[in-house]
Design a protein around this nucleic acid. Structure first.
Lengths: 204, 204
DNA sequence: GTCTATACTAAGATAGAC
DNA sequence: GTCTATCTTAGTATAGAC
């Protein structure tokens, strides 16, 4: 069981390792949904038989868990990095939100497959509900940060802070629906664009 | 085959009609995904046996088609109503976009189940790809309307009109992820909020 | 690390009775 | 409008050889 995440030069017999299997699984989970993806489909994509998959993981659910952990950890790191700022003035609160928005955009792009999986979860199993709970904790921490910025003034959160926060992060999360690496738009530029729309709007 | 959509008082033997079956199916498609939803699950939700479903529709796919047609027709109507405005001045272009945004929000709320189904499509079958094609035509028409507004001036579409449009409608579409009827926020207020964020941004 | 073979379960759909 | 019974295919997972 070579648990190495990115071994630079693999030892031993060629073939697939755990990371390969997870990557193939996540791609298929995103295309067909977790429930509708069979172990046979994952095996087929890797060019091996079904039972070869069970050499790497104990169950189909373990593949889901791997990917969700990865996405959640990355998002939580983004939040922590913004929380480190400890803002005092209204302008510093705005800067903190900007940091959070850019860090979230970066995570969505860097972890596009696993983040996509997370954002499409429906909570149909215990594992999925646990992941959604963890995501809800993240959302609440974000909401607290936004509320603090609104309290400090300088932010037109338009009476309903909760709905506004959902809309803003709905916009950010929608990136996974269309963003593909290698396009003309890089992470930095996309972050600029999102921040500009959120804070300044589209009217001249 | 009583094809009535909302018969005020049903004739004949009590039980489920086509609309009941479609509604149950859509709810389950949204929760588990189309592929992962079995006809047996639909039957169970309605309290009947599997084969009772096949009295109302010829296949599982027909249930999907019904719902997607409904969502697409509603969205296309919203677009047509905005297109009827034929704007001349920059301010009229802005008003046209506002009309489109409000009409889209209304459709998402009024047709929440079927709109949710449409927005989560992955294009894994011919039917799904046909629906996605129809949705793409809608998106392109929206993009043309936005481009016309940008050309008329008065709109800070920040160099990349395409990405900006995607982000804005990503925000609007994200409504389906959390909006539930009966909350404190009505369609009108939500439309106000979206329009305010999109045009004015959050900074004071 | 991968294979074939197999156990067991559930899927979509049909036939024909009530 | 719904039922039971059935056909056929495909799902998750395991056993044990190479």
């Amino acid at each position: 069981m070579s648990t190495t995440v990115h071994s630079p030069a693999r030892r031993g017999r060629p073939g697939n390792d755990r990371a390969d299997v997870v990557a193939a699984a996540v791609a298929l989970f995103n295309q067909h949904g977790y429930e509708a993806t069979s172990v046979g489909m994952i095996a087929e994509r890797l060019g091996v038989s079904k039972s070869a998959i069970y050499h790497h993981v104990a169950s189909k659910e373990e593949l889901l868990k791997q990917a969700l952990d990865r996405a959640l950890s990355s998002l939580e790191s983004a939040l922590v990095s913004a929380q480190a700022q400890n803002p005092q003035t209204p302008e510093e609160h705005l800067q903190q939100l900007e940091t959070l928005i850019r860090a979230t955009v970066d995570v969505l792009i860097d972890e596009l497959p696993s983040a996509t999986l997370l954002l499409r979860l429906r909570g149909n199993t215990e594992l999925e509900r646990a992941a959604l709970d963890r995501r809800r904790k993240f959302d609440h921490a974000v909401a607290r940060m936004v509320a603090a910025a609104a309290d400090a003034g300088d932010l037109a959160w338009r009476s309903d802070t909760r709905a506004t926060t959902r809309l803003v992060f709905g916009m950010i999360n929608s990136i996974i629906e269309w963003y593909r690496p290698g396009g003309s738009l890089g992470p930095k530029q996309l972050g600029d664009l999102v921040v500009a729309i959120v804070f300044e709007g589209l009217r001249h």
